[in-house]
Design a protein around this nucleic acid. Structure first.
Length: 869
RNA sequence: GGGCGCUUAGCUCAGUUGGUUCAGAGCACUUGGUUUACACCCAAGGGGUCGGGGGUUCGAAUCCCUCAGCGCCCACCA
């Protein structure tokens, strides 16, 4: 049975996916080994895999497979997130298509629809993760709305409440009118927009005079309860004690003085709408102003909007401008660039709104979390994000954790009446009744009402590294004690506040231990023009389609070829081609190995002996570099070293030397060693290319699963002198090949090369011969040969009489000039007293050695030139 | 407005404490190749005054200042 010339990944990959599944290869349980734990950043349960996931999870898989090869008990916990706003929005849309309005059905009916939807669309992404080769412990797959995880969330809320961190308050919050819920500050994004500044007439009461007030939001005049100016603003001093009249509304409001008002903005007058701006609210509190809410939950105006009652805020803006103009109360309109706040999820413009919500006090909780990162207990890769983290932690604001949604964890708060004036925090209705009774409120379970709000999605995510091991409910269970703290978390910098920071907070609060040792930030995957990949732009390839086309291994390494931590990655499909070519290269190296005819009678030949000795050192040298890269989370760089080791050193040099000449056989001794090297290579590539490496490992060894049979190699002694000699020899090989090309000779043309390098023995000569088809002879030749080269301190003469050697002489002269120039520089340096006196001895000696080398080289070249001419 | 980061070959990026292991890698490119593992290949080769300017130093891609361009994060200027 002959092996196919080109590697076709599909069948191989499906075969191994099936095996891993049947054999449960990657499941983990506590044992006497050290653990290496990763919890997956849970993707949205109804989401589908995009390139960002592909990158992120490939990196996690590499880390976890490497850990497994290192002999650690590797455990990668997969799972999905209920993503309350995103999923609820999808369900609302689905219902809309069925002509069902969310607000017209009951909570339980909606939740039933949501579960149907989740069951129908959920879990796709889990299968996709399997397809890219993720070696998760699939038995541990979690979902944030699983019973145990839900209970963990509730327990956490109760604990925080009992410790005094949770409170209920009426504040200005970010309101998403489309989802009709509040958002945390982190869920609001700002975009710059060209908008307009309108200058309105506010008449002074009992006067024909007016002042001009600038605003971007004329529709909010219905909520105005004052106009404020800076106390230092001389222009308005004389108006102290006066009242003003709101246009159209004709409400009489006071003029107040407050430092919060910027003198230089607009006219220096700020219309104060305490119900719809945080700053205004603050001013309102100070001056005891009325608060008039003018919006409904969907951002249409309510009855306070008078004749605009029921109309959308932006419709009203247009209409009211017309009305103001008609009434001659619009003074002027100026172009104005400002930033508007957008809901991260629904992209609709956020409405600041005064509302009663649940909050978490963050200040004191955050302190240890800041310290953990600042004192390097938790390490960030790349480091630069420490600054971002620090800034956020030092300025952290209380976290609005309640959401006016159905899909999520319902807040465990019970009220004794519909006014919500009294409440208890309890896990169940019955417990709530008991608690009410304790505080003297006699009530039964038909008279109490549970809070309608659910918790922010991130309020469950921040428990993830603990809750997946059931460490919230059972803090001392076996799993959590063994796997926690986890080793590394891999995620994008965009959720550093949403998730990373909060996990550190919750981990330290609940367990007094950091949740992870390392944080690896991936970059954003962009297209080759630098545009962020997104569904809307249609520039995001489907990873699964790429895998169908190139194979999972190829896409994995294609993505990684240029993905240093924290750097954005410009993805181009050609990277997958490069990946595919590499898999094919390895596949063919295997075919070559497979084709060797092995003889037990033969002794190992000289050149194989040398090649083995060389590759042993080369491999260990590179292994050191790879290990260092892994230690510093330089994953792409380690891949590149492996790529070159395999392609250049293993295939182009090592295999070319040891492979028998046509018709010859390979000694058994060599065969065994080549096989062991092949296995070592397979171990190195296994984290990056799990499918191909497993397939070849099986073919070579008749055994399955590399990590159960081999360990990541340990670097041994490196014979650096031999390595240098050999690498010098390869340089001569290159020069000779170049010489042949320049003289239009074919590879097979035989030449003799003479040298006087005592480091080269007969064995090395046979290596040379295999690679060049030329003899390398130790011989001092007085020859007119116009072809000599200088490598290191030695001259090599190629025995070839060129008829026209002009080109060659020109080149040799160039070389001569170059070395003369170099000599001058070195001499100048060494005669510079400042240099000789100030530079360290080591550096000076180095320069002297270089000068010696150059002098020798010049001499050799000169000799040759003399002979020729 | 505040903070962080970036600018090195056509492209994507390495370059640890200033000193020939400092100007590198991969891809792309050019040239040659029917070398029985691989054309998804082999071999050889070309290409950068390290964004501009100034300074410190015996010595700067590396440290300092400054200018220009780009990116990201944060912030209640209506």
């Amino acid at each position: 049975m002959s092996t196919e010339k080109t590697y076709s990944p599909k069948d191989v990959e499906l075969k191994w996916l099936d095996k891993w599944k049947t054999n449960n290869n990657y499941s983990s349980n506590p044992n006497d080994k050290n653990p290496y734990t990763i919890v997956i950043p849970p993707p949205n349960v109804t989401g589908i895999l995009h390139m960002g996931h592909m990158l992120n999870n490939t990196i996690q898989d590499i880390l976890i497979r490497k850990a497994r090869l290192d002999g650690l008990n590797a455990c990668w916990v997969p799972g999905t997130d209920h993503a309350s706003i995103a999923t609820e929005a999808k369900v609302v849309n689905m219902l809309k298509e069925k002509n069902i309005n969310k607000h017209e059905i009951s909570r339980s009916e909606f939740i039933e629809y949501a579960w149907d939807w989740t069951n129908k669309h959920g879990g796709i992404i889990i299968d996709q993760l399997k397809r890219i080769g993720c070696s998760c412990d699939w038995n541990r797959t979690k979902f944030t709305l699983d019973d145990d995880l839900s209970e963990s969330v509730i327990d956490m809320f109760i604990k925080l409440f009992n410790d005094g961190y949770v409170y209920r308050d009426k504040k200005i919050v970010n309101w998403d009118p489309e989802a009709r819920t509040t958002l945390s500050n982190e869920e609001v994004v700002y975009i710059e927009k060209e908008s307009k500044l309108y200058f309105l007439k506010y008449k002074i009461e009992n006067s024909e005079e007016y002042i001009s007030v600038a605003t971007t939001r004329p529709e909010t005049i219905f909520g105005d309860t004052a106009v404020a100016v800076n106390p230092k603003d001389k222009r308005y001093k004389k108006l102290k004690g006066k009242n003003l009249v709101v246009p159209i509304v004709n409400r009489v409001i006071p003029l107040v003085f407050d430092e919060l008002v910027e003198k230089d903005f607009g006219t220096g007058c700020l219309k104060v709408t305490p119900a719809h701006s945080e700053k205004d609210f603050e001013i309102g509190l100070k001056h005891k102003l009325d608060i008039i809410d003018i919006f409904n939950d969907d951002a249409t105006l309510n009855k306070n909007g008078l004749h605009y009652d029921g109309l959308d805020r932006f419709v009203v803006r247009k209409k009211i401008l017309t009305e103001l103009e008609e009434k001659n109360q619009l003074i002027e309109t100026k172009k104005y660039k400002n930033k508007i706040s957008i809901s991260e999820r629904t992209s609709c413009i956020v409405e600041p709104k005064l509302s009663t919500q649940w909050f978490l006090k963050m200040k004191s909780l955050s302190k240890p979390a800041l310290d953990a990162v600042m004192n390097n207990d938790i390490k960030f890769y790349p480091k630069k994000y420490v600054n971002t983290y620090k800034h956020w932690m030092e300025n952290v604001r209380d976290w609005n954790i309640s959401r006016q949604l159905y899909w999520g964890h319902r807040i465990p708060v019970f009220y004794s009446d519909e006014n919500k004036s009294k409440f208890v925090v309890a896990k169940s209705k019955n417990e709530a009744v008991a608690k009410f009774n304790e505080i003297g409120v006699n009530i039964d379970n038909t008279q109490i009402f549970q809070e309608n709000d659910v918790l922010d999605t991130w309020f469950s995510s921040w428990l993830w590294p603990i809750s997946v091991f059931d460490g919230v409910r059972n803090p001392k269970n076996h799993d959590i004690s063994y796997y926690y703290p986890t080793s590394t978390i891999v995620t994008g910098p965009d959720i550093i506040f949403f998730w990373i920071a909060r996990m550190v907070v919750s981990g330290l609060y609940l367990r007094n231990k950091k949740p992870f040792e390392n944080v690896y930030f991936t970059g954003i995957v962009r297209d080759n023009k630098g545009k962020k990949m997104s569904k809307q732009l249609g520039n995001s390839p489907d990873p699964i389609e790429l895998i169908e086309k190139y194979g999972a291994d190829s896409v994995r390494i294609g993505l990684l070829f240029s993905a240093p931590a924290g750097n954005d990655l410009l993805f181009d499909e050609s990277l997958c081609v490069q990946g595919r070519n590499f898999t094919n290269k390895i596949w063919n190296a295997f075919r070559l190995f497979e084709s060797f005819k092995v003889s037990k009678k033969l002794k190992q030949n000289d050149r194989s002996h040398e090649a083995i000795k060389w590759f042993e050192s080369k491999f260990n040298l590179k292994l050191n570099e790879i290990d260092l890269c892994f230690k510093n989370f330089k994953i792409s760089e380690s891949l590149m070293i492996i790529y070159k080791l395999v392609w250049d050193d293993f295939c182009s040099v090592f295999l070319e030397i040891v492979k028998p000449k046509y018709g010859e056989e390979l000694s058994e001794e060599s065969s065994i060693i080549i096989k062991s090297y092949f296995n070592k290579i397979l171990v190195l590539i296994n984290p990056f290319m799990p499918f191909l490496s497993e397939e070849l490992f099986e073919k070579i060894n008749n055994k399955e699963i590399i990590s159960e049979n081999l360990k990541w190699p340990k670097s041994k002694n490196i014979d650096s002198i031999f390595l240098q000699n050999f690498d010098d020899l390869i340089q001569v090989v290159t020069k000779v090949r170049n010489f042949k090309k320049q003289n239009s000779l074919g590879f097979k043309d035989e030449l003799s090369v003479f040298h006087q390098n005592k480091n080269i023995n007969e064995s090395l000569s046979s290596v040379f011969e295999k690679l060049t088809n030329c003899k390398l002879l130790y011989k001092d030749v007085e020859t007119n040969a116009s072809s000599s080269i200088v490598i290191g301190k030695f001259k090599y003469i190629i025995d070839f009489n060129k008829e026209n050697s002009d080109d060659y002489i020109i080149e040799l002269k160039k070389d001569f000039e170059y070395n003369l120039g170099f000599k001058k520089i070195l001499e100048k340096k060494l005669s510079n007293e400042n240099f000789v006196n100030n530079a360290p001895e080591k550096v000076i000696q180095n320069e002297r050695d270089k000068l010696d080398d150059v002098l020798k080289k010049i001499e050799i070249i000169k000799e040759t030139l003399d002979k020729i001419s």
